[in-house]
Write a protein that binds this DNA or RNA. Structure first.
Length: 251
DNA sequence: AGCATTGTTTCACA
DNA sequence: TTGTGAAACAATGC
């Protein structure tokens, strides 16, 4: 699930349910999710602290503690993670990381796939600007270069941060651009249209609850037809991910 | 049974 | 050196 829209909702969720509650304990026993930390390290660092700010860039979230005086907790939802608050512990250790509060409640990263991540003082220097916030000129400069397929460029988190497989397909369909076009060949007008479509798709997805609500995502799969022109959607692999697009309209 | 999967990172190669 | 693409990672669902 998690691309930028889901992560923004998760950030807001933590802002609402996690801020201001004093941490009694951190469950960091999953050494894979908490790598490279040793079990106990996050617990030692966070015990007695209070989350005071919830921030996000792209698909990464981080949380300041004690008004910036304490360590920063970084969380990533991976491929299937979500945040839950004040729910009983999930079976099968699906709560890969959790904070227990002094008030008796808890906040957990619930992630069956186990590709989520919890880390202290996360390194965000390799992330590009947030895909929902990036300005026109910066977008043109960063996205509109290189010989890689446009979709791969869009999903490169060091170029702009937040676009995943589904949001990329939805945005390219809205913008009527082929995912296969070399990114450097786009005109400024096409790049501007792409950025507008990206903002539109992102905001709509945040409002509606996630990228899976996208117009072209809902019917994803074999035999799907373009919601606009009814042509049969074509499947390809771009940037290593399954890609669906309209071969008539998207060029 | 086998394949696909919304995520990132690493590695090989041009 | 830089850029690009494939494979690995873990676990589940169809």
């Amino acid at each position: 699930m998690p691309e930028l829209p889901e992560v923004e909702r998760a950030r807001a969720f933590v802002e609402e349910h996690g801020l201001g509650r004093r941490i009694a304990t951190a469950d960091d026993r999953d050494a894979y999710v908490c790598r490279p930390h040793q079990p106990g390290e996050l617990d030692d660092a966070l015990r007695g602290r209070t989350l005071t700010r919830a921030l996000r860039r792209g698909k990464s979230m981080w949380f300041e503690t004690d008004e910036g005086e304490g360590p920063v907790l970084g969380l990533h939802l991976g491929m299937a993670g979500r945040m839950v608050a004040d729910e009983p512990e999930a079976p099968n250790r699906w709560d890969r990381f959790a904070l227990g509060f002094e008030d008796g409640g808890r906040l957990a990263l619930r992630d069956k796939r186990r590709l989520g991540r919890a880390v202290l003082n996360p390194d965000l220097t390799r992330l590009g600007p947030d895909a929902a916030e990036v300005g026109r000129d910066v977008f043109r400069r960063r996205v509109g270069r290189g010989g890689a397929p446009l979709k791969a460029r869009l999903m490169d988190q060091s170029v702009i941060a937040g676009v995943g497989n589904l949001l990329a397909d939805e945005t390219l369909w809205q913008a009527r651009l082929s995912p296969l076009r070399p990114a450097g060949e786009l005109s400024d007008a096409e790049l501007d249209a792409l950025r507008n479509a990206l903002r539109l798709c992102t905001r709509r997805a945040i409002r509606k609850g996630g990228v899976h609500t996208g117009e072209v995502i809902l019917g994803r799969g074999r035999g799907q037809r373009c919601p606009r022109c009814q042509a049969e959607m074509r499947r390809a692999v771009v940037g290593g991910r399954t890609t669906w697009f309209c071969p008539i309209e998207q060029s």
